[in-house]
Amino acid sequence: MPKKVRSSSQTSRLLSLDVFRGATVAAMILVNDPGDWEHIYAPLEHSKWNGCTPTDLIFPFFLFIVGVSIVYAMERKALNPANHAKMLWTALRRGVVLIAISLAIQLILHPGFEHLRFPGVLQRIGVVFFICTVLYLKASQKVRDWLFAILLIGYYLLMTFVPVPDTGVASLIPETNMGAWVDRMVFTTNHLWNESHTWDPEGLLGTLPAIATGLFGIRVGNWLKRPNREDSVKVSWMFIYGVLAVVAGLIWDLFFPINKALWTSSFVLFAGGWATIALAFSYWIIDVQGHTHFTKFFLPFGANAITAYVLSDFVPHYINKIRIGGSSLYQILFQPYYSPNNASVASAVVMTLLIWVLMWILYVRKIIIKV
């Protein structure tokens, strides 16, 4: 019989959460580093616009994990209000450092300020982490639930009913929606992501519902930490909660499409539901049933998630610069032996394993790089 590892109410760490974080980071590296961007299997690509692929779930899963982690990392200290000022300052510092890291990566890999992208993945993580920390420390769960609803409903009303100043009508089209207009006004067109510099998938307005994704994680984290509920009850309600969120997202999708780039309210519910289901399954298998033999691969990624993400920018960049007889390593090692799509995904798998080796070295030496 498998041995129960621990209860979430008895420890400040949750093995299933570490594994879930590690698996999410591994998936993020896999989809971000294909051998050939022109040849990618559909599940490993983001949706063109509306809709959702498995790849679209990776970033919201990470922000959901941020919310759950806030509970596990801060619950004890948060009980004493005297700790709050220091905790808020630490959260602000971490948020600023994440933004600085993202900008530094761009400047190192692509020197020059002219087209430096101001929004980004790390920027959104930093902002969501800080605001969710503030709300965790200074607001009750009831207030956070109201804010969750206000963010989702308010964002829906803003995006679908408020006319965009450029056009005079509300729009959910990439270049003409309210979020794109705000980003052009704030960042200017030189500092946005897409080639036409007219919109950005990690823009300012979309950060509002992204905060709701973090709040989703906080609610689930609070539920998992409850000492007066059996594990079977916790898992059952997480599955129910997750399924209901997915269904609600699909219903909302009928008039406010599931869209990762806009981070629509339906996308928050849909992705948050699947994240809750995934964490419930992981918690039951790993923490309750004690099946931990398969977790060792993911833990190094989970322990140094931001470091792994940063290396996933640098390692492929410099490996792709290596030339032997005028050919890249990808052209030598993968293209001649596989179909275009298989060569691309095989290269991505090798790159993920290479970064895992670096993370494993840090993990076995108990080196945790914190921002």
Results as ranks from 00 to 15, higher is better:
residue 73 A to I: 11
residue 103 L to K: 05
residue 97 V to H: 02
residue 39 H to G: 01
residue 116 L to F: 10
residue 82 A to N: 08
residue 80 N to D: 15
residue 97 V to Q: 02
residue 65 I to N: 10
residue 113 F to M: 15
residue 63 L to N: 06
residue 112 G to R: 12
residue 117 R to I: 10
residue 126 G to W: 01
residue 46 H to M: 04
residue 109 L to P: 08
residue 141 Q to Y: 11
residue 104 A to F: 15
residue 44 L to C: 07
residue 72 Y to H: 14
residue 132 C to E: 02
residue 73 A to T: 10
residue 90 T to N: 06
residue 122 L to T: 13
residue 33 D to F: 08
residue 123 Q to F: 12
residue 79 L to F: 00
residue 67 G to M: 03
residue 81 P to S: 05
residue 68 V to Q: 09
residue 40 I to E: 03
residue 105 I to M: 14
residue 96 V to I: 13
residue 36 D to I: 05
residue 66 V to Q: 00
residue 59 F to C: 05
residue 126 G to P: 04
residue 60 P to C: 11
residue 66 V to S: 02
residue 88 L to F: 01
residue 89 W to M: 11
residue 92 L to E: 06
residue 120 G to F: 10
residue 67 G to N: 08
residue 85 A to G: 12
residue 82 A to W: 04
residue 62 F to L: 09
residue 137 L to A: 09
residue 118 F to H: 06
residue 112 G to S: 04
residue 45 E to T: 09
residue 105 I to L: 14
residue 137 L to K: 10
residue 99 I to W: 12
residue 129 F to E: 04
residue 115 H to S: 11
residue 86 K to E: 09
residue 33 D to H: 07
residue 93 R to A: 03
residue 56 D to M: 07
residue 81 P to I: 01
residue 51 G to D: 07
residue 33 D to M: 09
residue 125 I to T: 08
residue 142 K to Y: 02
residue 120 G to H: 11
residue 135 L to A: 04
residue 92 L to F: 12
residue 142 K to M: 01
residue 129 F to Y: 15
residue 63 L to M: 06
residue 95 G to W: 01
residue 72 Y to Q: 05
residue 44 L to P: 00
residue 38 E to I: 07
residue 88 L to Q: 02
residue 53 T to K: 05
residue 139 A to L: 07
residue 96 V to G: 00
residue 83 N to E: 14
residue 92 L to H: 02
residue 98 L to W: 02
residue 43 P to L: 10
residue 102 S to A: 15
residue 47 S to Y: 04
residue 96 V to D: 00
residue 116 L to T: 13
residue 102 S to R: 06
residue 63 L to S: 09
residue 40 I to T: 08
residue 67 G to V: 08
residue 91 A to G: 04
residue 117 R to D: 08
residue 102 S to V: 11
residue 74 M to I: 02
residue 71 V to I: 05
residue 84 H to N: 01
residue 109 L to A: 10
residue 65 I to Q: 07
residue 48 K to Q: 13
residue 127 V to I: 15
residue 67 G to T: 07
residue 80 N to M: 07
residue 73 A to W: 03
residue 124 R to L: 10
residue 79 L to I: 03
residue 120 G to Y: 15
residue 137 L to Y: 09
residue 48 K to H: 13
residue 106 Q to A: 14
residue 107 L to M: 12
residue 55 T to C: 09
residue 107 L to N: 10
residue 135 L to C: 03
residue 84 H to G: 00
residue 104 A to D: 01
residue 38 E to T: 15
residue 105 I to F: 00
residue 54 P to T: 08
residue 113 F to S: 14
residue 53 T to W: 00
residue 41 Y to M: 02
residue 72 Y to A: 01
residue 37 W to H: 11
residue 138 K to G: 06
residue 72 Y to T: 11
residue 41 Y to S: 14
residue 76 R to P: 00
residue 135 L to Y: 06
residue 104 A to S: 15
residue 108 I to A: 12
residue 49 W to T: 15
residue 145 D to C: 11
residue 55 T to H: 10
residue 73 A to N: 12
residue 108 I to C: 13
residue 52 C to E: 12
residue 72 Y to D: 04
